[in-house]
């Protein structure tokens, strides 16, 4: 699919980032990666959308950590097990191997210590699922190239001075971090600007261009 095709589709598929079910596509993909009945910790669980999905469709024992008071209170009011806490600090309190999966969905870029957070997740969970927005996405590059301004998109609408996303990276940057912490990539999926999977078995460089976001399943060691 050429960048031109993507632009054409962009005019007609503005809402395509959400699936027919109304769920975020990246959350559906993450839920698919999780074995039914697992113990799952969702770091940065928001109001509990993924937790609810995992509990209802996968029968998981799903817990969350969320930093925003409003998110926690909304999630707990929905009957979900969510703790108000800061991933940058509170992951240290969880024992080794206490979860089958630790999930970080669209949150790594908002942590103060992404590398430490990733290491902690790999310690606490046997497997780790990370989804990241890709700053190497072609439209980001184009935006910066043509406008000379920091890119902002529908998924990342913040201005540079008030964004919570203080540690952006590209898919290739993240792959490098995974190597640095000594983790193994079990699987990876890139999603284009409409939340569709980039299906072709392409090299990282291509995913880095076409993927607006990516979902990784990681495990410890090589």
């Amino acid at each position: 699919m050429s960048p031109r095709d993507l632009l054409i589709q962009d005019l007609t598929m503005k809402e395509a980032a959400r699936a027919a079910s109304g769920k975020r596509v990246d959350l559906l993909i993450i839920a698919d990666l999780v074995e039914p009945g697992s113990r799952v910790l969702d770091v940065g669980s928001g109001d509990g959308e993924l937790l609810e999905l995992l509990a209802t469709t996968r029968g998981c024992d799903a817990r969350g950590i969320e930093i925003s008071r409003a998110g926690v209170n909304a999630g707990v009011a929905r009957g979900l097990a969510i703790i108000q806490g800061d991933a940058d600090i509170d992951l240290a309190d969880y024992p080794d191997d206490s979860f089958d999966y630790v999930i970080l969905s669209q949150t790594l870029q908002a942590t103060r210590r992404p590398k430490w957070v990733l290491e902690q997740m790999l310690r606490v969970g046997r497997r780790v699922v990370v989804s990241i927005p890709n700053f190497g996405f072609w439209r980001m590059r184009l935006d910066l190239l043509l406008n000379g301004r920091m890119p902002s998109t529908e998924n990342l609408p913040y201005s540079w001075y008030d964004t919570p996303n203080i540690h952006f990276c590209t898919i290739r940057d993240f792959v490098a971090l995974v190597e640095e912490v000594g983790a193994r990539i079990e699987s990876a999926t890139a999603l284009n600007g409409y939340g569709q999977k980039v299906r072709l078995n392409l090299p990282w460089a291509v995913w880095n261009l076409l993927g607006e976001q990516a979902v990784f399943l990681l495990s410890r060691g090589r």
Partner: peptide, 21 residues
């Protein structure tokens, strides 16, 4: 409360915690 939450986490308990403004 957070100290109790940390202990419950360490014990692997199902725990929610909310601080209310």
């Amino acid at each position: 409360s957070r100290a109790v939450v940390h202990a419950l986490n360490a014990a692997g308990a199902s725990v929610s915690f909310a601080e209310i403004e």
